[in-house]
Structures are given as structure tokens and as C-alpha cells.
């Protein structure tokens, strides 16, 4: 019966999806537990912060600079319609700190480091290095995953901070240097408009995105399928899933944070 077969397939799909959803949460839970339980291996953490964080700094600064610059151009254009170009500084700074800094940093880090993390772990999986760890009584979750997830958590807010600072500088260069806004107004308006609340909400977002980045890129690598095909698929899925997750979570997180901080 065709109907029975289709129903069966649909059922199997639902079961598979639910099971892998469950497994990925279990994976996150085990990783977070592994983070706090000894033995600690600080050098592994340092190595990952270096690989994920430090190596992304330049590219983050570069896109930060141009994002700030374009925000100044757009902001000045829009605000000029209301005769309010004096507020170009806060427009740039708030857009960066509250929204574009965390999101663009996350997308960039996912594209650059997330694919690398997944591919590295996937290759370790298919060349049996992960099995070798387990056979030597070393927990791969603790040895491989926890340092990477922690590095994401640490590096993302820091990179986001760099993005914001360089971005505001880029906005300043364009706004003051090219569009002829007053330097004093630009900066003083930023200082009076940007509150601690904005900085906090940006920081929380960046941290959550850091966790999403580490979780998904590690999970996809850890569960990678057979052969070069498997690594290929895992890497693509990792980048797409993490990027989509960041944008979806961003909406809900922004709504919640805005409401919480308004009160």
C-alpha cells in the first residue's frame, strides 16, 4: 500500500529528526558538564581561543570598519531628511552595538572558523582519531569539544567588541571626514545616547551566538558521516545551520532583551 509506505516514511522522518534533535541537546549538555569537571587542560583552551579568536581578528576589524562606514553614509542620508544629521553618531553606534556587531561577527566567525572546526573534527572522526581517543580512555567531548565551545564563548564577545569599536571609528571617519559632520557632536551624541543596557544586550547576544557557533560546529563534526562526502556534507550543514540559528535566535533574543531592559 502506497499510503502505508508514505506514512511509515513520514513517521521514520519524524523519529529521526526528534532523535537527532535530542542527541544534539545531550551533546551540548555533556560538553557543558565537561567544561566544569576536572581534569582541566588550559593549554587546549588557549590553543582554541587562539585559533578561533585571534586568527579572526583582522577580518572582523576589516568588515567592522566598512560596516561602520556604510552605516554613517546611510544614517546621514536618512537623518538629513529630518534635519537630524547630528544624530548620525548614535545611529551608527546603536546599530552596531545592539544588532550588527553581534550578528555580523557571528556570521563571519561561523563562515571562517565554524567550517574549519567542523572539517577538522569530521576528519578526526573518519580517520578514527576520535575512536583512538576513546580507546585510550580520553573523553573526546572533554578533550576536543569543550575547548572549542569555550573558545567560542570567550572569543565571540571579544571579537564583537573589536567589531564595534572599529565600526564606530569607521563611521567617524566617514561622518566627520567625508560628510563634514562636527567631530564633537558625533562623539558626544554617542556618549549620551548609548547606555550600559545597549552594551549589555550586545554582549549577551554575542555570548549566546558564541555558544551556538561552538555547539553546532562541534556537533556536526563529531557526528560526521563516512568518507570525504561525509565531511563535505557536515561542513556545509554546520555553516548553514549555525547561520540560520543565529538569525532566528537573534530575533527572539532581541525581543526578550529589549523588553527586559526596558523595565
Amino acid at each position: 500500500m502506497n499510503f502505508v509506505a508514505t506514512t511509515e516514511q513520514f513517521g521514520a522522518f519524524i523519529i529521526d529528526t526528534t532523535a537527532s534533535w535530542g542527541r544534539s541537546w545531550m551533546f551540548l549538555y555533556r560538553t557543558l558538564v565537561a567544561l566544569v569537571k576536572p581534569p582541566y587542560r588550559p593549554y587546549l583552551y588557549l590553543q582554541q581561543v587562539l585559533q578561533i579568536g585571534v586568527n579572526s581578528t583582522l577580518v572582523i576589524a576589516l568588515i567592522g570598519l566598512f560596516t561602520g562606514a556604510v552605516l554613517a553614509v546611510q544614517g546621514e542620508y536618512t537623518l538629513s531628511k529630518f534635519g537630524a544629521t547630528a544624530y548620525t553618531g548614535p545611529a551608527v553606534a546603536l546599530s552596531l552595538i545592539r544588532e550588527l556587531g553581534p550578528v555580523l561577527t557571528a556570521l563571519m566567525v561561523i563562515g571562517r572558523a565554524g567550517s574549519a572546526v567542523t572539517a577538522e573534527l569530521g576528519i578526526m572522526r573518519i580517520t578514527e582519531q576520535i575512536d583512538a581517543l576513546r580507546s585510550m580512555a580520553v573523553d573526546p567531548i572533554k578533550y576536543l569539544m569543550a575547548p572549542r565551545v569555550a573558545a567560542g564563548l570567550i572569543a565571540m564577545p571579544l571579537l564583537c567588541g573589536i567589531f564595534n569599536v572599529v565600526g564606530i571609528f569607521g563611521g567617524y571617519l566617514v561622518g566627520v571626514g567625508l560628510l563634514g559632520l562636527s567631530a564633537g557632536t558625533f562623539m558626544s551624541q554617542i556618549i549620551s545616547a548609548v547606555g550600559l543596557v545597549d552594551v549589555w544586550s550586545g554582549f549577551i547576544k554575542a555570548s549566546v551566538f558564541g555558544l551556538i557557533f561552538g555547539w553546532i560546529s562541534c556537533y556536526k563534526g563529531y557526528t560526521c558521516g563516512f568518507g570525504a562526502q561525509g565531511v563535505n556534507k557536515a561542513t556545509t550543514q554546520s555553516v548553514v545551520t549555525a547561520s540560520v540559528a543565529v538569525l532566528i535566535v537573534d530575533y527572539f533574543l532581541t525581543s526578550v532583551l529589549t523588553r527586559v531592559f526596558m523595565e
Binding site: 578514527e128 582519531q129 583512538a132 580507546s135 585510550m136 580512555a137 580520553v138
Partner: peptide
């Protein structure tokens, strides 16, 4: 597993470590 030693199909050495550290790995980590 302490009773077991395993030689994997393609050796499964850790690429990020030197050969010295690969050999030392079970002593240091296990």
C-alpha cells in the same frame, strides 16, 4: 580499556601533535 592497546587501520595518529607527543599521549593523558 586499560587492558587494551589498539593499532588502527591508518594508525589514527593525532595530526596536531608531533610523533613524540603522539607516543607520549597515553602516558600523559590516560
Amino acid at each position: 580499556r586499560r587492558q587494551l592497546g589498539v593499532l588502527f587501520q591508518s594508525a589514527a595518529l593525532f595530526d596536531s601533535l608531533t610523533i613524540y607527543n603522539n607516543i607520549a599521549f597515553p602516558l600523559l593523558e590516560r
